[in-house]
Design a protein around this nucleic acid. Structure first.
Lengths: 216, 216, 216, 216
DNA sequence: CATGAATGAGTATTCATTCAT
DNA sequence: TATGAATGAATACTCATTCAT
């Protein structure tokens, strides 16, 4: 009951589970539009082109849909992140990759950004129960890279790696939030803006991490 | 319906609608606890020590309560922030004050901080409609301080003040979020931890803003 | 959760709780008509002349309505029965009173008879959870009278008082069931028939209890 | 819709719709467990080891399954009862056989007994529509045995055979009900207890029927 | 004949809002 | 002003039934 146990994904064969994906994508769209609470299950169903009841063949309940969005997407992100974090590259380069990765998740997906930055937080229950573990895992990976940078003398040591990781993530999330909230003009310019902002933020962050080197 | 037309706030006579204030305070507390949607009007009423119907003597409806929180409280927050931003102090000191202010460590106004970190994301619809403008104003104030620092040569110039402002806010929000997600032990130790984390984050941020000075 | 804890009956003052009673009576009527499961909550509400939501001010849920019918009515029956069982009268006379009492509950209330004989058994869950205790108490009272009769040498001793009590009750219930199921002609003749049948059954039962006296 | 027109039972060829029988058996079991309404068609299917849809190849709908149980099983029960009632044995012996038959202690046909005690009351609507006639026939057979006993001077004449039949059935039903309500320990001890209770009840009943002989 | 994924009508329950007192 | 009992619209979820395979 407590652990998130999704409906036993019916035979992940060729196309069938394609329907689960369709529902997930539809949910991202409608959640981004009206928010999790304002969205009716039938809205998701209509958007996905299935019957209301079909939703319940693939998900436990409405909550489970939101949770699954988070878990599927963040889960994938963590997988890649794990690989990046372990790479044999300079730590600052890896930090830049992490930033690009997190933003890349949202590349051209303002809807997904909104679901993750806004909708997920509307239910403290869901956030704490299901979000926290994955979120913590994600942050720990980032923190481990920063800690490594501290050990190798590249980063200042008077900052907790976890605090830095949270701040890094929070800064990106903040950028994404304002980006998601920004008008409806979803032109490439905006995408470019997000990208550029992220780069600036990355350099600021890295300089901050290095900057204190003298007084460390 | 669309324009926010609150109940004609009965002229603040002697005890200037002392009850309206009590309801607002109560709402901030319960919204912070369980979120806007999970909170029932009767929860607010109980917390405020009034009858359900009384809420409707001071607010149009439930939405109006959240909107009023935005406007009243963020309004006050902005007022204070405006004063801080205009102070005749070094910019880095002012940035540190902003950080403390947002985290509510300043003057024990934690409730003001909660409005931003918790309530801001409660309702997608309301956030976009009423929250965004105020939020933007808030960020602009921060950005103005940073811009000033750039002008005076204290901060690097290759970072957009707005990007920096968002990142600053986002980082703080991230710290507050993980702090909120962490267990329930609301002892002073946790307060201390948040405070310390905020300081570290502040220094990292400031060093980042200064750090690039050489290549600026 | 397990114990049946009805909504805190709002002030049992003059008339207010009158509404609870109205709902209960309405429920008896509609349950008897279409059965517990086929009856919609809104049917009860309409019959009682209240709004759907009002039902939930007086009852936990639909189950609670059925349980309350049983508990209220059987509860009252047990109160009287307790007095009768303790009377200073010959045991056979007391047994006859018990029979009349049980049938009297249903006097001219074929609907109530149907609710108790049929509807209550449609949910084994409800029956076991809430019905059993009261039912057992009721049977024990009857059994105690029979046991007394055995001690005083009036009744045969080779029959368990509990078995006899169950059989007595079962026989009455059987008569009530066929009576409740019988056509729709609810004339006095039918009432008389039930009464007469009960008397016959009472004498048969009493003779049975006495009959074995010689081989006891 | 009203008249019970079952699916054209496919001509019982070799294995005469062996599957229909399996479904019926399964339904009796699960209905007895949780009641008609609480049982889902898929429960029946799982218990029978067939797919949900298969049920509809043999039955019109869920109601039809319950109706078919009535008709098939009670029909069989009545057949056996008819044979017992017509036997060339003393009436009291035949009454004892009837008792054992109804309690399912005879020939291990407990399922037949369950149909009466449990399934009969499952659906008010169906009970009235399809059950009542069969039930009446069942009672009439018992009544006929009692009437015969009265004619032959073995039983008292001041009791209506029908009343006696109902009481006999009701008493047994009462015993079975309390037996069913009692815990879950389905050991042989419980079976023995029921058997013994039934015997006691039988003798009480018979003595009651005979007992009044002197004042008849 | 058999399957079981998909359907969508049906309903208990909640909770914002009203209004008689 | 203040109350809180009453309202009833709104909606997540279930499950009997269908039908393409």
């Amino acid at each position: 009951m407590n652990a998130h146990s999704p409906k036993p994904k019916p035979k992940p064969s060729r196309a069938p589970t394609d329907k689960r994906e369709r529902i997930l994508e539809a949910a991202i769209r409608v959640f981004a539009q009206g928010g999790f609470y304002a969205t009716r299950v039938s809205d998701i169903a209509r958007e996905a082109g299935v019957a209301d009841g079909t939703i319940y063949l693939y998900f436990e309940n409405k909550d489970d849909v939101l949770i699954s969005i988070f878990q599927d997407r963040i889960g994938k992100l963590i997988e890649v992140l794990r690989e990046v974090a372990a790479r044999d590259e300079p730590v600052d380069k890896r930090v830049r990759r992490i930033i690009e990765l997190q933003l890349g998740l949202l590349e051209g997906r303002r809807d997904l950004a909104e679901v993750i930055t806004v909708n997920l937080r509307q239910s403290s229950k869901l956030l704490k129960q299901y979000g926290a573990p994955l979120f913590t895992e994600y942050l720990e990976l980032i923190a481990s890279v920063i800690a490594e940078g501290q050990k190798s003398g590249v980063f200042r040591k008077d900052v907790s790696p976890r605090v830095a990781a949270r701040a890094l993530w929070g800064g990106l999330d903040g950028l994404a939030l304002t980006w998601a909230l920004g008008g409806n003009s979803d032109d490439a310019a905006r995408d470019g803006a997000l990208h550029k902002a992220a780069q600036q933020w990355g350099e600021l962050f890295l300089d901050g991490l290095r900057g204190g080197m003298d007084h460390a």
